[in-house]
C-alpha cells in the first residue's frame, strides 16, 4: 500500500494518508487532481473496481467530503480517495466515463446533497425523490425530525414524564 501511495506522490499531491487497516487506506486529494488520480489508479495501479462513491457533509467546515472507494481486485486492497469541495455551489468534475455506475451515484448525490456533476448523464433527473422542493435532504442542515413533525401528525394521547423532573414535582416541589 505504501509503495502505491509513494508512486502517486511522484506525480500528484496528496495529503493526510490514513492507514485504517492493512488493506484499506484513505488519502485526501485536491479537487483539481482527483479525477486524474482516480484514472491513474484505475488504469495503472489496478484499482479497477469502484466500490462506492458517496459524500459526507462537514457543515461546520463548510465542506462536502466526496469519497471514491476504489478496489484492486488482484491485490485485494482498497483505497479511499477523499476530496473536499466547497459546500457553496458544490460542484465536482464527473467521473461517469470511468465506470458505468458512476452516473447513478452522481445522480443520487445531486439529489441528496445538491452536489452538481456537470455533463454527467441524467444528473438532473430525480432519482429517488419525485417533486422534492425542500433543501437536499442528506445535508446536515435538513432537520428530519422537524420535517416529520411538519408533515405528519402524532397520535393523540401520548405524554411522557422525565423521572427526575417527575420526582421533583412529587417529592420536593418547593425546593
Amino acid at each position: 500500500m505504501k509503495d502505491i501511495i509513494d508512486r502517486i506522490k511522484t506525480k500528484y499531491t496528496i495529503s493526510e494518508v490514513v492507514e485504517q487497516r492493512k488493506n484499506l487506506s484513505f488519502v485526501t486529494v485536491s479537487k483539481e487532481q482527483a479525477i486524474s488520480i482516480i484514472t491513474f489508479l484505475r488504469d495503472i495501479e489496478g484499482f479497477k473496481h469502484l466500490v462506492l462513491l458517496t459524500a459526507a457533509d462537514w457543515i461546520e467546515n463548510d465542506k462536502f467530503q466526496l469519497t471514491y472507494l476504489l478496489n484492486n481486485p488482484t491485490e485485494k486492497i482498497d483505497l479511499g480517495v477523499r476530496v473536499f469541495i466547497s459546500r457553496e455551489n458544490a460542484s465536482m468534475e464527473s467521473a461517469h466515463h470511468l465506470w458505468e455506475q458512476v452516473a447513478t451515484y452522481q445522480r443520487e448525490l445531486k439529489e441528496m446533497f445538491g452536489i452538481d456533476f456537470p455533463d454527467s448523464p441524467g444528473v438532473d433527473k430525480p432519482f429517488i425523490l419525485e417533486g422534492w422542493e425542500d433543501i437536499p435532504p442528506y445535508r446536515r442542515d435538513f432537520d428530519t425530525k422537524q420535517y416529520s413533525e411538519d408533515t405528519y401528525f402524532p397520535r393523540p394521547g401520548r405524554e411522557s414524564n422525565d423521572p427526575a423532573e417527575y420526582m421533583k414535582k412529587k417529592l420536593y416541589p418547593n425546593e
Binding site: 423521572p163 417527575y166 417529592l171
Partner: peptide
C-alpha cells in the same frame, strides 16, 4: 414507542419515580 406514565397505586418515593413504561405498539 415508550412513555413513562404515572400509575395509580404506585407511590413516588426514594428510589422509585412511580412511573411505569407504557408501550405504543404502533
Amino acid at each position: 414507542a415508550i412513555d413513562m406514565v404515572p400509575v395509580e397505586g404506585i407511590e413516588t418515593k426514594d428510589g422509585d419515580s412511580g412511573l411505569r413504561p407504557q408501550i405504543d405498539y404502533g
